[in-house]
């Protein structure tokens, strides 16, 4: 009980700290360029949170995510550009359409298993990409959509300045993180993890595996769609490239750098990777050479990513400190416990 309270306190402090820094960032950022980079990083991070739910928690390697990102961006872009709908209508529409498409895709793809699932979702990603590129009349083909309107102002708040757009994106990012952490710590999130660990066992225990997979897939797509819509409203120019599977691979890289199946991982990974990319502009060409190799090294040696490595380090230190404590004041409660455990083994 006490432990739980400690944990939730630490969690609150972490969230508070992040929010404080994020809110202060436009004031302390030395130049506006950083602000644009971080805003874009936040948008990507929202999509990476979606991927984290599927790959990290549910354990299903879906490679359709850039397709969903592009879908969200194009739905929102087209609605506001062609039908002149308000951003506040086109954004939820983008999320809903993306979710519906994903549910349909999930209904078919989750009947396949293992490698078939990966290849299937990859093909869905390619199909979305190709349709966006070839459906010239609607999407403008390779020319893309130009001049997408800014997010519509709400009463006195407009989204013209860079800062205001930053805060808008930050709002959605915080919402995403909140929802994801609520899910992760609940029975629903544990159910996803149990499916990742053993689908057969989960089903034997009465868990409806298909329904849970669809649920996770739908939520992931929902946020990916939102990220796409935010991208369209922020960059205001979109081309078929944003639905290319290469973007999925980048999301995957961000996720793996940060740490899959952790709450901080997607944000940490995305910010570090996009930050590195920007600060190493001179070696832009070599970027994917480095990232490609990095991807292999991470999955081989650090499958938990940065956050996973940090957590491992923390438990190690705690263990060591516990040991030190114990040897000082001999038979403490912890010692008793440990002794019993040893007896059992």
């Amino acid at each position: 009980m006490l432990d739980g309270m400690k944990k939730s306190n630490a969690k609150l402090i972490a969230y508070g700290g992040f929010l404080a820094v994020a809110i202060a960032f436009p004031f302390i950022s030395p130049n506006r360029y950083y602000l644009t980079v971080v805003t874009l990083g936040f948008i990507y991070a929202i999509a990476v949170y979606g991927l984290n739910l599927i790959v990290g928690y549910l354990g299903q390697l879906s490679l359709a995510q850039a397709g969903f990102f592009g879908l969200g961006a194009y739905v929102s872009g087209l609605l506001s550009l062609k039908l002149h709908l308000s951003f506040w209508i086109s954004l939820p529409m983008a999320a809903v359409v993306t979710t519906l498409v994903a549910l349909l895709v999930g209904l078919i793809s989750f009947r396949t298993r293992g490698h078939y699932f990966v290849i299937f979702t990859l093909c869905i990603g390619v199909i979305i990409n190709l349709v966006i590129e070839k459906w010239d009349d609607l999407t403008g083909g390779v020319r893309g959509l130009i001049g997408i309107p800014r997010p519509t102002s709400i009463g006195p708040i407009d989204f013209i300045s860079l800062e205001s757009q930053y805060y808008l994106v930050l709002f959605f990012l915080s919402l995403t993180i909140f929802v994801m952490s609520q899910i992760a710590s609940s029975l629903v999130g544990r159910t996803f993890k149990s499916i990742r660990n053993s689908e057969e066992l989960a089903a034997t225990l009465g868990i409806n595996v298909m329904r849970n997979k669809l649920l996770a897939f739908g939520i992931a797509a929902f946020f990916t769609g939102i990220a796409g819509a935010l991208f369209a409203g922020y960059i205001r120019f979109i081309g078929p490239d944003i639905s290319n599977p290469h973007l999925t691979f980048e999301f995957l890289l961000f996720l793996l750098i940060g740490g899959q199946a952790t709450i901080a991982g997607p944000l940490v990974g995305t910010l570090i990777a996009t930050g590195l990319t920007e600060s190493l502009q001179f070696m832009q060409e070599y970027r994917m050479v480095v990232f490609g190799a990095l991807l292999i090294i991470i999955v081989k040696f650090f499958p938990g990513g940065l956050v996973g490595a940090a957590m491992k380090l923390k438990t190690k230190i705690e263990k060591r400190m516990n040991k030190a404590n114990k040897s000082v004041n001999a038979p403490s409660k912890g010692e008793n416990h440990a002794a019993k455990n040893r007896g059992f083994n």
Binding site: S186, L187, G206
Partner: peptide, 10 residues
Amino acid sequence: IIGYRSKTKM
């Protein structure tokens, strides 16, 4: 805890 999941409704 996960084993009890099918009995819960949330």
